[in-house]
Amino acid sequence: MTAIVVLGSANMDLVTYVDRVPRLGETVTGRELRMVPGGKGANQAVAAARAGGEVAMIGAVGDDAYGERLRHTLEASGVDTDLLRTAAGPSGTAHVAVDGTGAHTIIVIPGANGTVTHLAPGEESLIAGASALLLQLEIPLNAVLAGALAARRHAVRTVLTPSPAQPLPPELLDAVDLLVPSEDAAATLTGIADARLSAEALLRRVPEVVIRMGAAGSLYAARGREPVTVPAPRVRAVDTTGAGDTFVGALAVALGEGRPMTEALGWASAAAALCVQRPGASTSMPYRSEIGA
């Protein structure tokens, strides 16, 4: 079993399926609306737990019906929610539009996630006992930094998904062991569109980088090593929501089990490929047996 702590967001995803996303000022008719538990933190927790990891979640949900469902979804996937807070007010929501190709746009309203501004009692101890801490950027940056610094104090591997992409303070990057941006996020962070050159720039701040390139696979770069590209399985995407989080959750499990990085990336790519063939985020995440097959 792999001890993984996730510090991050939990949202209810309100997912609309449309032939194409409307332009500014335009109205289009959608095919379907689904309410799916999500949020980058909760997604990574569910993905890691289903991939066989021992996972605990730190974050917050609201005292509303969405909060109850989010907590239940995490627990049903085997995630420890003992330190998942309940905040007064609404849970976070994500308003997702998925087009006919499976690509998506997202608007996130933080809700209870915005109350996670620091580590609460007991949370640093939980992080200290983990093999890895997974972080994203859908909770206030102060809490992300506090988590990363706590992990650094206790020699816990810190994996940061820099999404939604934004400028990152040097002290946060200094505490990150593995940065896992999408190709777009890497370009936002560095101002460089080419993935290999972007990875080279990022290695000046962090020791290891994995750039997720969608159907083109992933690029792994580490200081003092030649970059390696690991291809992704060829599949027909139905909905790419949650694919990146599935990748990161599965990758954390594989690395925690001591697999070599290229093997771990192949495992994570298989998990993400299964995810994109199904609608929704947490509902589409595969179990360990499926990934292995």
Rank of each mutant, 00 (worst) to 15 (best):
G292F: 14
I106M: 10
P181N: 00
L179E: 03
E208A: 15
V28M: 05
N11C: 12
D194F: 04
G191Q: 10
R236I: 14
S282L: 09
A155V: 13
S9V: 09
G102K: 04
R196F: 07
A143E: 07
D80C: 10
A232F: 11
L70P: 00
Q136L: 06
E183C: 06
I58Q: 03
E68N: 07
Y17N: 10
D245T: 04
R34T: 13
P233C: 13
T262D: 12
S9R: 05
L145H: 06
A130N: 11
L70I: 01
A243M: 09
G129Y: 08
R34S: 12
V144K: 05
R204W: 09
E200H: 11
G67M: 11
V21A: 02
P121I: 11
V6R: 03
L203V: 08
I58L: 09
M35L: 15
A3Y: 12
V210E: 00
A148S: 10
L189R: 04
S182G: 15
D239R: 07
V238G: 00
P233E: 13
L33Q: 10
E171D: 15
D63E: 02
D177Q: 09
V176C: 05
V6Y: 09
R223T: 11
A216Q: 15
V116A: 14
A146W: 03
L33G: 11
E123H: 02
A222K: 09
G217W: 04
Q44W: 00
G249M: 06
L145G: 04
E32V: 12
A56K: 05
L141Q: 12
R278V: 10
E138H: 08
G59W: 00
R288L: 14
A254R: 00
A150C: 10
T73C: 13
V5Q: 05
T115Y: 04
S218E: 07
A130M: 12
L160F: 04
V159I: 15
T81R: 02
E124V: 08
R71Q: 06
A273T: 04
A56T: 09
K40S: 10
V276H: 00
E68M: 05
L33F: 12
R225C: 14
P181T: 01
L137M: 11
R71P: 01
A237D: 02
E290T: 13
D82Q: 14
E208T: 12
A65H: 07
P231T: 07
P279W: 14
G242Y: 01
S284A: 13
G129I: 06
T158N: 08
R152Y: 01
A195G: 01
R234Q: 15
A120Q: 10
A155T: 14
